[in-house]
Computed example of a mutant assay.
Amino acid sequence: MPDTMSSEAAQALMPALREAVREAASLALPHFRSGEQTRARIWSKAGGSPVTEADVAVDAFLKVRLSQIVPAAAWLSEETRDDPVRLRSGLVWIVDPIDGTRAFLSGHPDWSIAVGLLSAGQPVIGIVHAPASGHFYEAVAGCGSRRDEAPIRVSDRAALPGARVTGPKPMIERLTRGLTREGADPDFVRIDRVPSLALRVARVAEGSIDVGLVSSDARDWDLAAADLILREAGGSVCDLAGRRTIYNRENPVHGELVAVPDGLLVPVVAALTA
């Protein structure tokens, strides 16, 4: 298989990828207890963030299965040691086996499995599956976005006042202050923060959230799959200069970001940087 991939070739892979992601979910779900603490084994990684046996099992399964589906692709995952060979590869899988591990641990339903494929540095496939709710978001570059097989689009809101906003409280407060300085009443509808960053972005793509704010320190695996879903639905994940997110750099860590419909990007960035 070549080291780049067309949208047509990516589309042909989707049935196998859907099956792989759903099978991966079946490894995690037995450890998830809705509204209760998981009984899965838990470790602390460097820096103190938790990882469970479910994260490890899903990661190992997907690494094998996705490598079979696209053998030429390199690998970048939250739970696998980074291999710099990815920097020289035209195709790269970017995977978060459980995005929102703390939600998974506590019985909150908003955790997900996120799988993205980069071709020549750009996302060409994005899948975000929320096993606890059963929702399945997906996109192929140039082919639109879908949730549970139905097409989705971002909100058509054209003005920031009254928008449905979610994300870290300090960023929401900055957004509020910036809009107030411009003489507008923010009147935001605050949506509870979505623990899975991939799901937060996907919900902007489906139009149930207008503005998703992302604090610094997000990683490629939190974003790449959902970013494509948002792009194909009429939005994007951008930095505070309005630039789209770049993936598969040597350091896959990002600063503050916004996930918004294209029509809200300029006013959101202006308010945050006022």
Rank of each mutant, 00 (worst) to 15 (best):
P151M: 12
S216K: 15
L223T: 13
L213A: 11
G207Y: 07
G178N: 02
D156M: 02
R190W: 00
V154H: 01
I209C: 09
R200S: 14
R219Y: 11
V189P: 00
L179Q: 11
P186D: 08
R219L: 14
D187A: 15
A141Q: 14
P168G: 10
V165F: 01
T180C: 01
A218T: 13
A205I: 12
A139M: 05
G134A: 10
G167F: 02
I152H: 05
S215R: 15
A198D: 05
P168I: 01
V204P: 03
Y137I: 08
V204Q: 03
S133P: 02
S215N: 13
V189H: 03
S216A: 15
F188I: 06
F188P: 02
K169C: 00
V165G: 02
M171T: 05
A224T: 14
A139D: 06
R181T: 07
L223G: 12
S145G: 15
T180W: 07
F188Q: 02
G183R: 08
D148M: 03
D217V: 08
A225M: 10
T176G: 03
E206R: 08
A163N: 03
L179S: 07
P195R: 07
V214D: 01
G142T: 06
G142C: 05
K169Y: 06
V154K: 00
F188C: 03
F188E: 03
R153C: 05
A159N: 05
G207I: 05
P186K: 01
A139S: 10
E138M: 13
P151N: 08
R164I: 00
L179F: 06
T166V: 07
R219W: 11
D222A: 12
R181A: 11
W221N: 13
R190M: 04
I191H: 10
V165L: 04
